Simulated scan of single mutants.
Amino acid sequence: MTAELHTLTGAYALDAVSRAERAEFERHLGECTACRQEVAELQATGARLGVAAAVNPPPELKLVVLADVARTRQLPPKVPVALDGKARAKTWQLRTALFGAAAAAVVAVVFGVTRAPAPVDSVLSAPDASAIQGVGEGHATLVVSRSRHQAVLLASELPALDAGHVYQVWLIGTGGARSAGLMTPAASQRMLVADLPADVDRIGITVEPAGGSAGPTTPAVTRIALV
């Protein structure tokens, strides 16, 4: 054994050695009690430091990643299967929903919200959760769960408004247009969680006077059709 092997304890404990160095050093560990003890102490210290610096990601992150996934074209499947239009659309929708659900553990940004994001996890984890992309101003993604009777709306890059106006979200169906809430005017990313009545078949975002309106007073700048 060479003296240099004794100096690899720190690198080995932090997994910073090559494959060849790892194999040689592990053979050395079988013969060197001092190195085994030092490696164990260094690994324990590294684990404590990692836990001390750990930060739990907020639940809003799922919506950020889900929105990006819905805007990003995915690679086609590597199978020579010809899909018709309906099958292709369904495959894309399922891939988007599943990828978004799997993105639960990545780090997030801070949103400006007018309603608490507590039900976000419940909506995203629902078996029937699906993501729908909006059309119009900015980018908008709606995650819908009919079984939970809820939806989560994430909007970004909407045009800035003056202090006298806000964005208002509307649930539209056979019962007319009902307000789902206001979105803060200053935030670059806006999120809203809303109950979803069974008759609602589309969502609209309008510009309204500060404080909101009893009903839409302007055409929707962003529209989402529930499918």
Rank of each mutant, 00 (worst) to 15 (best):
M1L: 09
T2I: 07
H6A: 15
T9V: 11
G10C: 05
Y12N: 04
Y12H: 12
A13M: 06
A13V: 05
D15K: 10
A16F: 00
V17I: 10
V17F: 03
S18Y: 05
S18Q: 06
S18D: 12
R19A: 14
A20E: 15
E26K: 04
L29A: 07
T33M: 08
A34K: 08
A34W: 03
R36H: 04
Q37D: 13
E38T: 11
E38F: 01
E38Q: 14
L42E: 06
A44V: 09
T45Y: 11
T45M: 14
T45I: 12
T45R: 15
G46Q: 05
R48N: 06
L49E: 11
G50P: 01
G50R: 14
G50E: 12
V51G: 03
A52Q: 10
A53R: 13
A54W: 14
A54T: 11
N56A: 15
P58T: 13
P59K: 08
K62A: 11
L63V: 14
L63G: 02
V64Y: 05
V65D: 04
A67Y: 00
D68A: 13
Q74V: 10
Q74G: 12
L75A: 15
L75Y: 08
P77L: 12
A82F: 08
K86M: 10
A87Y: 03
A87K: 11
A87W: 02
R88N: 09
R88G: 03
T91S: 11
L94D: 13
R95T: 11
L98R: 13
F99D: 08
A103D: 04
A104K: 08
A104C: 08
A105S: 13
A108Q: 12
F111W: 12
F111T: 04
G112M: 05
A116N: 13
P117T: 08
A118D: 15
A118S: 10
P119D: 08
S122D: 15
S122F: 04
L124H: 01
D128T: 09
A129R: 03
A129P: 01
I132Y: 05
G136L: 02
G138Q: 05
H139R: 13
H139D: 15
V143R: 00
V143A: 00
V144F: 00
R146E: 11
R146G: 04
S147K: 14
H149S: 13
A151N: 01
A151M: 13
V152D: 01
V152F: 07
L153K: 00
A160S: 12
A160T: 08
L161H: 02
G164E: 12
G164C: 05
V166K: 01
W170F: 07
L171H: 05
T174W: 04
G176C: 09
A177C: 10
S179A: 11
A180M: 09
G181I: 03
G181E: 04
L182W: 02
M183P: 01
M183I: 06
T184V: 14
A187F: 07
S188K: 11
L192C: 07
L196T: 02
L196R: 01
P197T: 10
D199F: 07
T206R: 02
E208V: 14
E208W: 00
E208M: 03
P209L: 06
P209Q: 11
P209H: 09
A210Q: 14
G211K: 08
G212R: 01
A214G: 15
T217F: 00
A220G: 02
V221C: 07
V221I: 15
V221K: 04
T222D: 06
R223Y: 03
R223N: 11
I224L: 15
A225L: 10
V227S: 12
